[in-house]
Write a protein that binds this DNA or RNA. Structure first.
Lengths: 116, 116
DNA sequence: CGGGATCCTTACTGATACTG
DNA sequence: CAGTATCAGTAAGGATCCCG
Protein backbone atom coordinates (compact mmCIF):
# COMPACT_ATOMS: atom_id res chain seq x y z
CA UNK A 1 0.00 0.00 0.00
CA UNK A 2 2.86 2.44 -0.46
CA UNK A 3 0.81 5.60 -0.69
CA UNK A 4 2.42 8.70 -2.18
CA UNK A 5 2.11 12.25 -0.98
CA UNK A 6 -1.26 12.55 -2.64
CA UNK A 7 -2.38 11.70 0.87
CA UNK A 8 -2.32 15.37 1.63
CA UNK A 9 -5.06 15.98 -0.89
CA UNK A 10 -7.44 13.32 0.28
CA UNK A 11 -8.66 9.82 -0.23
CA UNK A 12 -11.75 10.39 -2.30
CA UNK A 13 -10.73 7.71 -4.74
CA UNK A 14 -10.24 5.09 -2.08
CA UNK A 15 -13.45 6.07 -0.34
CA UNK A 16 -15.28 5.74 -3.61
CA UNK A 17 -13.78 2.30 -4.19
CA UNK A 18 -14.84 1.10 -0.76
CA UNK A 19 -18.34 2.39 -1.42
CA UNK A 20 -18.44 0.61 -4.76
CA UNK A 21 -17.60 -2.64 -3.03
CA UNK A 22 -20.13 -2.12 -0.33
CA UNK A 23 -22.88 -1.24 -2.77
CA UNK A 24 -22.60 -4.79 -3.99
CA UNK A 25 -21.63 -6.63 -0.84
CA UNK A 26 -23.64 -4.88 1.83
CA UNK A 27 -26.81 -6.31 3.15
CA UNK A 28 -27.30 -8.68 5.97
CA UNK A 29 -26.63 -11.87 4.04
CA UNK A 30 -24.56 -11.38 0.91
CA UNK A 31 -21.15 -11.97 2.43
CA UNK A 32 -22.36 -15.05 4.24
CA UNK A 33 -23.88 -16.47 1.08
CA UNK A 34 -20.72 -15.84 -0.90
CA UNK A 35 -18.71 -17.45 1.89
CA UNK A 36 -20.83 -20.54 1.79
CA UNK A 37 -20.42 -20.94 -1.94
CA UNK A 38 -16.75 -20.03 -1.73
CA UNK A 39 -15.92 -22.54 0.97
CA UNK A 40 -17.72 -25.39 -0.74
CA UNK A 41 -16.94 -24.41 -4.34
CA UNK A 42 -20.34 -25.60 -5.49
CA UNK A 43 -23.43 -25.39 -3.37
CA UNK A 44 -27.10 -26.03 -3.78
CA UNK A 45 -29.92 -23.76 -2.72
CA UNK A 46 -31.01 -25.87 0.20
CA UNK A 47 -27.43 -26.27 1.39
CA UNK A 48 -26.83 -22.56 1.44
CA UNK A 49 -30.11 -22.23 3.30
CA UNK A 50 -28.62 -24.36 6.05
CA UNK A 51 -25.17 -22.76 5.98
CA UNK A 52 -26.47 -19.27 6.43
CA UNK A 53 -28.20 -19.42 9.76
CA UNK A 54 -31.42 -17.49 10.02
CA UNK A 55 -31.95 -16.63 6.37
CA UNK A 56 -35.34 -17.33 4.83
CA UNK A 57 -35.73 -18.91 1.42
CA UNK A 58 -37.36 -15.74 0.25
CA UNK A 59 -34.30 -13.69 1.12
CA UNK A 60 -31.86 -16.26 -0.16
CA UNK A 61 -33.64 -16.33 -3.47
CA UNK A 62 -33.54 -12.57 -3.74
CA UNK A 63 -29.91 -12.21 -2.73
CA UNK A 64 -28.76 -14.96 -5.08
CA UNK A 65 -30.51 -13.18 -7.90
CA UNK A 66 -28.70 -9.94 -7.14
CA UNK A 67 -25.35 -11.70 -6.90
CA UNK A 68 -26.01 -13.30 -10.24
CA UNK A 69 -26.87 -9.96 -11.81
CA UNK A 70 -23.62 -8.58 -10.49
CA UNK A 71 -21.77 -11.48 -12.13
CA UNK A 72 -20.41 -12.84 -8.88
CA UNK A 73 -22.07 -16.24 -9.11
CA UNK A 74 -23.32 -18.66 -11.74
CA UNK A 75 -26.56 -20.52 -11.49
CA UNK A 76 -26.88 -24.00 -12.96
CA UNK A 77 -30.02 -26.06 -13.07
CA UNK A 78 -29.17 -29.71 -12.65
CA UNK A 79 -31.21 -32.31 -14.45
CA UNK A 80 -32.07 -34.31 -11.35
CA UNK A 81 -35.34 -35.55 -9.96
CA UNK A 82 -36.50 -33.50 -8.24
CA UNK A 83 -34.71 -30.61 -9.75
CA UNK A 84 -31.73 -29.05 -7.97
CA UNK A 85 -29.85 -25.84 -8.59
CA UNK A 86 -26.17 -25.34 -8.11
CA UNK A 87 -24.41 -22.09 -7.45
CA UNK A 88 -20.74 -21.38 -7.85
CA UNK A 89 -18.55 -18.32 -7.92
CA UNK A 90 -17.61 -16.80 -11.23
CA UNK A 91 -14.00 -15.93 -11.89
CA UNK A 92 -14.84 -12.46 -10.77
CA UNK A 93 -16.57 -13.75 -7.67
CA UNK A 94 -13.50 -15.76 -6.82
CA UNK A 95 -11.52 -12.55 -6.44
CA UNK A 96 -13.49 -12.04 -3.24
CA UNK A 97 -11.78 -15.02 -1.66
CA UNK A 98 -9.12 -12.87 -0.02
CA UNK A 99 -11.76 -10.71 1.57
CA UNK A 100 -13.68 -13.74 2.79
CA UNK A 101 -10.52 -15.13 4.35
CA UNK A 102 -9.75 -11.81 6.00
CA UNK A 103 -13.23 -11.61 7.42
CA UNK A 104 -13.01 -15.17 8.69
CA UNK A 105 -9.74 -14.50 10.45
CA UNK A 106 -10.92 -11.21 11.82
CA UNK A 107 -14.10 -12.80 13.12
CA UNK A 108 -12.13 -15.44 14.96
CA UNK A 109 -9.76 -12.86 16.42
CA UNK A 110 -12.62 -10.62 17.41
CA UNK A 111 -14.42 -13.42 19.16
CA UNK A 112 -11.31 -14.26 21.14
CA UNK A 113 -11.01 -10.61 22.09
CA UNK A 114 -14.58 -10.43 23.30
CA UNK A 115 -14.82 -13.75 25.12
CA UNK A 116 -11.28 -13.46 26.41
CA UNK B 1 -5.08 -20.81 4.04
CA UNK B 2 -3.89 -24.43 3.90
CA UNK B 3 -7.10 -26.09 4.93
CA UNK B 4 -6.90 -29.70 6.10
CA UNK B 5 -9.21 -32.51 5.22
CA UNK B 6 -11.70 -31.29 7.77
CA UNK B 7 -13.16 -29.69 4.68
CA UNK B 8 -15.10 -32.81 4.13
CA UNK B 9 -17.04 -32.27 7.31
CA UNK B 10 -18.00 -28.70 6.71
CA UNK B 11 -17.12 -25.11 7.31
CA UNK B 12 -19.43 -24.22 10.15
CA UNK B 13 -16.62 -22.64 12.08
CA UNK B 14 -15.57 -20.41 9.22
CA UNK B 15 -19.16 -19.53 8.46
CA UNK B 16 -19.64 -18.56 12.07
CA UNK B 17 -16.52 -16.41 12.02
CA UNK B 18 -17.68 -14.55 8.94
CA UNK B 19 -21.05 -13.96 10.57
CA UNK B 20 -19.39 -12.65 13.70
CA UNK B 21 -17.51 -10.13 11.62
CA UNK B 22 -20.57 -9.10 9.71
CA UNK B 23 -22.65 -8.68 12.84
CA UNK B 24 -20.34 -5.82 13.69
CA UNK B 25 -19.44 -4.49 10.28
CA UNK B 26 -22.65 -4.83 8.34
CA UNK B 27 -24.93 -1.95 7.68
CA UNK B 28 -24.84 0.49 4.87
CA UNK B 29 -22.27 2.82 6.40
CA UNK B 30 -19.98 1.18 8.94
CA UNK B 31 -17.24 0.08 6.56
CA UNK B 32 -17.20 3.45 4.87
CA UNK B 33 -16.96 5.25 8.19
CA UNK B 34 -14.12 3.04 9.35
CA UNK B 35 -12.39 3.58 6.03
CA UNK B 36 -12.59 7.32 6.40
CA UNK B 37 -11.08 7.23 9.87
CA UNK B 38 -8.55 4.63 8.78
CA UNK B 39 -7.32 6.55 5.76
CA UNK B 40 -6.96 9.81 7.63
CA UNK B 41 -5.86 8.37 10.96
CA UNK B 42 -7.80 11.01 12.83
CA UNK B 43 -10.99 12.48 11.59
CA UNK B 44 -13.63 14.85 12.89
CA UNK B 45 -17.37 14.34 12.79
CA UNK B 46 -17.97 16.91 10.07
CA UNK B 47 -15.14 15.54 7.97
CA UNK B 48 -16.50 12.02 8.08
CA UNK B 49 -19.85 13.46 7.16
CA UNK B 50 -18.27 14.75 3.94
CA UNK B 51 -16.19 11.63 3.28
CA UNK B 52 -19.12 9.28 3.45
CA UNK B 53 -21.34 10.48 0.67
CA UNK B 54 -25.02 10.43 1.38
CA UNK B 55 -24.94 9.75 5.09
CA UNK B 56 -27.00 11.95 7.37
CA UNK B 57 -25.69 13.30 10.65
CA UNK B 58 -28.30 11.26 12.43
CA UNK B 59 -26.97 8.02 10.97
CA UNK B 60 -23.35 8.99 11.39
CA UNK B 61 -23.93 9.74 15.02
CA UNK B 62 -25.63 6.42 15.56
CA UNK B 63 -23.07 4.35 13.70
CA UNK B 64 -20.15 6.02 15.45
CA UNK B 65 -21.72 5.19 18.77
CA UNK B 66 -22.03 1.54 17.85
CA UNK B 67 -18.46 1.39 16.62
CA UNK B 68 -17.33 2.94 19.87
CA UNK B 69 -19.30 0.39 21.88
CA UNK B 70 -17.62 -2.37 19.89
CA UNK B 71 -14.23 -0.87 20.76
CA UNK B 72 -13.27 -0.20 17.18
CA UNK B 73 -12.91 3.55 17.54
CA UNK B 74 -12.06 6.11 20.19
CA UNK B 75 -13.87 9.36 20.60
CA UNK B 76 -12.02 12.43 21.81
CA UNK B 77 -13.58 15.79 22.54
CA UNK B 78 -11.17 18.57 21.63
CA UNK B 79 -11.13 21.73 23.66
CA UNK B 80 -11.66 24.09 20.74
CA UNK B 81 -14.15 26.88 20.15
CA UNK B 82 -16.55 25.77 18.96
CA UNK B 83 -16.10 22.24 20.17
CA UNK B 84 -14.85 19.53 17.82
CA UNK B 85 -14.72 15.79 18.21
CA UNK B 86 -12.05 13.54 16.86
CA UNK B 87 -12.38 9.88 16.06
CA UNK B 88 -9.57 7.40 15.59
CA UNK B 89 -9.27 3.66 15.32
CA UNK B 90 -8.36 1.68 18.40
CA UNK B 91 -5.63 -0.91 18.20
CA UNK B 92 -8.35 -3.43 17.62
CA UNK B 93 -9.95 -1.27 14.97
CA UNK B 94 -6.63 -1.02 13.19
CA UNK B 95 -6.68 -4.76 12.59
CA UNK B 96 -9.39 -4.00 10.03
CA UNK B 97 -6.91 -2.17 7.84
CA UNK B 98 -6.21 -5.24 5.73
CA UNK B 99 -9.88 -5.69 5.03
CA UNK B 100 -10.28 -2.03 4.14
CA UNK B 101 -7.38 -2.25 1.72
CA UNK B 102 -8.78 -5.38 0.13
CA UNK B 103 -12.17 -3.79 -0.27
CA UNK B 104 -10.59 -0.73 -1.81
CA UNK B 105 -8.67 -2.78 -4.32
CA UNK B 106 -11.64 -4.96 -5.08
CA UNK B 107 -13.85 -1.91 -5.59
CA UNK B 108 -11.39 -0.47 -8.09
CA UNK B 109 -11.10 -3.77 -9.93
CA UNK B 110 -14.85 -4.24 -9.97
CA UNK B 111 -15.41 -0.79 -11.38
CA UNK B 112 -12.95 -1.47 -14.17
CA UNK B 113 -14.75 -4.70 -14.90
CA UNK B 114 -18.13 -3.04 -15.09
CA UNK B 115 -17.19 0.10 -17.00
CA UNK B 116 -14.77 -1.83 -19.18
C1' DC C 1 -19.49 22.06 15.71
C1' DG C 2 -21.41 17.86 17.22
C1' DG C 3 -24.95 15.94 18.11
C1' DG C 4 -30.13 14.69 20.11
C1' DA C 5 -35.37 14.54 19.31
C1' DT C 6 -39.16 14.16 16.35
C1' DC C 7 -41.68 12.80 12.44
C1' DC C 8 -42.36 10.32 8.51
C1' DT C 9 -41.26 7.31 4.42
C1' DT C 10 -39.28 3.38 2.52
C1' DA C 11 -36.65 -0.77 2.59
C1' DC C 12 -35.95 -5.00 4.59
C1' DT C 13 -37.60 -9.31 6.38
C1' DG C 14 -40.01 -13.30 8.37
C1' DA C 15 -44.02 -16.45 8.20
C1' DT C 16 -46.86 -18.88 5.64
C1' DA C 17 -48.82 -20.93 1.78
C1' DC C 18 -48.46 -22.40 -3.01
C1' DT C 19 -46.47 -24.20 -7.58
C1' DG C 20 -43.74 -26.71 -11.32
C1' DC D 1 -36.22 -29.13 -4.53
C1' DA D 2 -36.20 -24.46 -5.73
C1' DG D 3 -38.35 -21.11 -5.82
C1' DT D 4 -42.86 -17.26 -6.01
C1' DA D 5 -46.66 -14.67 -3.97
C1' DT D 6 -48.93 -12.32 -0.38
C1' DC D 7 -49.22 -10.12 3.99
C1' DA D 8 -47.78 -7.58 7.57
C1' DG D 9 -44.40 -6.02 11.02
C1' DT D 10 -39.90 -3.96 12.06
C1' DA D 11 -36.10 -1.45 11.33
C1' DA D 12 -33.32 1.69 8.60
C1' DG D 13 -32.93 6.02 6.81
C1' DG D 14 -33.89 11.07 5.53
C1' DA D 15 -35.46 15.85 6.71
C1' DT D 16 -35.91 19.20 9.81
C1' DC D 17 -35.48 21.66 13.99
C1' DC D 18 -33.22 22.36 18.29
C1' DC D 19 -29.57 22.87 21.81
C1' DG D 20 -24.99 23.62 24.48
Amino acid sequence: MSIPEACLIGHKKEMRAVQDSMDILSGKWKIAIISSICYYNKRRFSDILKDVEGISNRMLSKELKELEINKLINRTVLDTQPISVQYELTEHGLTLKTIINNLTEWGIAHRKKIIG
